[in-house]
Simulated scan of single mutants.
Amino acid sequence: MGKVVLVTGVARQLGGRFVRRIQRDPQVDRVIAVDAVPPEHHLGGADFIQADIRQPTIARVLAETNADTVVHMDVTGIALGSGSGSRATVKETNVIGTMQLLGACQKSPTVKRLVVKSSTNVYGSAPRDPAVFTETTPPKSLPSGGFAKDAVEVEGYVRGFARRRPDVAVCVLRFANILGPTADSPLAQYFGLPVLPTVFGYDPRLQFVHEDDVIEVLRIASHDPARGTLNSGTFNIAGDGVLLLSQCSRRLGRPTVPLLLPAVTWAGSLVRTLGITDFSPEQIRLLTHGRVVATNQMRETLGYRPKFTTAETFTDFARVRGPGLLPPEALAGAVDRIAALPFVPFPGSAGTPVTTAVTPTTAT
């Protein structure tokens, strides 16, 4: 008999795509799609069961379906069908829902593999962070709130489950910021703003992973390992390379408004109150200090090489989102001309001015 795969969070576009993809694998005999609300998209030949993972009923679903593989995708930073989302609902689904699901998996004698969709948000964003995080690098300061704190708690519960059920292969996938044609995340909403507020004096390095690569990595982690690989453990998942926030704004054709950090914090509170986007404190820290992770283990141990680089992922995202207020070429040319202007000190300024070298780049 083939595998029986249970997938949570299928009402979201990413969950629906994974359900449609995994059931095409010849090793899979049946796919059980679970969510608290019916999805608006089709799920192919999967069996949909409407169940809230925050409730004990998920244990009955596992027992009745005899699932041997559980793919937990219902860990997210934004509420379904909401611009800013209900933070309380999101936290309950992330943390309480994960606890209930893991409790059900612990009692199930048939579960042999658990795959959890996590995030590189667990590393946080701080001024003294290392240039590159590996899977074993501890954060300089643990996230104090928001989705990042949820992800830290979720991974803690998963590690506890792995100790209690050593017979279950557990794979935690820490995805960088997910972008693509159907991306729905706080960062995707931020890039959708007509003008991008930025923190004055900072140009953070950002990493992205394409939706297509997310689906493929989840599929690989859901199966028994191929020869020479190990589909268990914790893995950073991101596209090759990085982009600066300034390069992202140029490619989108959206102007930036540099603000002092207190003003950015106030602007974030305002857009959250208005329901425009979830411009949370953790996102402000990301847009201040950035975050880059190493992906050696993804290639060497998990055996996967992303099809999209960080730059290609953002290009595909920008193509679907359409042009901004300014043509990207014109915006890039204006920025380059400003950068080429000679430095002129303010009247009355003392001492030797400190200048920053600007390296010309063809990437716009």
Rank of each mutant, 00 (worst) to 15 (best):
T315S: 10
Q100Y: 08
S82W: 04
A238E: 08
L302V: 13
V172R: 04
T362F: 09
T93V: 13
L287C: 11
P181S: 08
P327F: 00
I220P: 00
V75H: 05
Q247L: 11
F308S: 00
I58S: 05
T120Q: 12
D150V: 03
G228Q: 12
H289T: 05
A131H: 09
V111D: 14
H42W: 11
V61G: 05
V19I: 11
C171W: 12
P127A: 02
D47F: 10
A131K: 03
N121K: 05
A63L: 05
R205H: 11
S119M: 08
D25W: 02
A221L: 08
I215C: 05
S280D: 14
G44E: 03
Q100A: 13
F279Y: 12
T295F: 14
P360Q: 10
A350W: 11
Q50C: 14
K140L: 04
T134M: 10
G241E: 09
G145L: 02
P323V: 08
P130W: 01
R54K: 09
E216P: 00
T313N: 01
L62I: 14
G44Y: 06
T361L: 11
V264W: 01
P255G: 04
S125K: 07
S269P: 06
L287A: 05
F308W: 14
T273C: 13
Q106F: 05
D35I: 00
E282P: 00
L331T: 05
G81W: 02
W266R: 08
T359H: 15
P347T: 07
Q55E: 09
V34E: 13
V34T: 14
P181N: 08
V344L: 08
L196S: 00
L326A: 06
E329Q: 04
L270C: 15
D52T: 04
A263Y: 04
F235M: 15
Q247T: 14
I58V: 15
L6R: 02
V195D: 10
I58Q: 10
G290C: 08
D29E: 13
P347M: 11
G333F: 06
R319G: 02
E312V: 02
Q207L: 10
D224H: 01
L101F: 06
L6A: 15
E312L: 07
E155P: 00
V209D: 01
A340K: 11
V264I: 11
G333I: 03
E216A: 07
R24C: 06
G85W: 10
A46G: 05
I276A: 09
